[in-house]
Amino acid sequence: MTTTASIRAPDLGRPNRLRLAWLLLVLGLLGICCALSVAIGARDVGLADILAAFNGLADTIEQAAVTKRIPRTVLAAIAGAALGLSGAVMQGVTRNPLADPGILGINMGAALAVVVGLAWFGLAAAQAYIWTAIFGAAVTAVFVFVIGSLGRGGATPLKLALAGTATSIALASFITAVILPRNDIAEGARSWQIGGVGGATFDTIIQILPFLAAGFLLCLLSARKLNSLALGDELAAGLGERVMLARATASFGAVILAGATTAICGPIAFVGLLVPHVCRLLVGVDHRWLLPFSALGGAILLLASDVIGRIIARPGELDVGIVTAFVGAPIFIWIVQRYRGRDL
């Protein structure tokens, strides 16, 4: 799909004016979602309380609630951006429309690594969490790609998705097996099976920022390389691209983003799957546009899902990972529907 489109249209899709219009719209949507995320929750708050909370007051319960929602909103936005971007890069690197850090089991790998670290190696510092998670994500990514690309036709969507699903189920079983006997960490068992942004604090956000920044940089810098890769390995090599190096750096960036996000939020699936597909409809297949849009789109999706999760399960709340799966899985099925049999 990507290949034919980019050969047919030299400008890789859409006129820039249209893209700028979309950019403004998406930024506006992002602002609205942030506002909603601060304003809506289990407890109703007034505008005065929100403003007071932004000024650092936490005198009333309402203001305290808003004070807790601010870091949550920030985390949802950056985590969503990281996952959206990570998914877009993975789809680009593998030229596979079903690639997503959740579906490929990469987030679960990160979660298992953290859980093992917690249970057996007494992991405590947030920095150690993040390194462990990135390590787990990287190992899982390599594993799933190797399994999925064996045999003829390389990594077809079916093989990759199956390898990812199988790995996810195994990893989820291992996570349960590690956590179940340990009463001291069993409390957190749920948060390592389904991702959420509920427990966000500015401390944890600051801890992952350098990692995310590195990941964003690696991914965004490889946009042009991904455009070449979309033409196929031979053509990309003919254009002077060092194919393996380009793949490796872009994947590394995507894995850092997925791993670091999972270290803080737990495994969240389908954001990275769904957002790039929608963004491709908006701005076309040029990765220089697609990647930033996927980041913005991911932020919007995760913020909106988080708000929905707070509304539909009142007085409790639903972890954002559940909402994204519910929204994302139908899109997954839709993408599968659009493909012809031999391309699966």
Partner: peptide, 15 residues
Amino acid sequence: GFGARLILTGIGVAA
């Protein structure tokens, strides 16, 4: 592509 589509659709439904 019945088989492949069935499995992939099923994965989505399972999610």
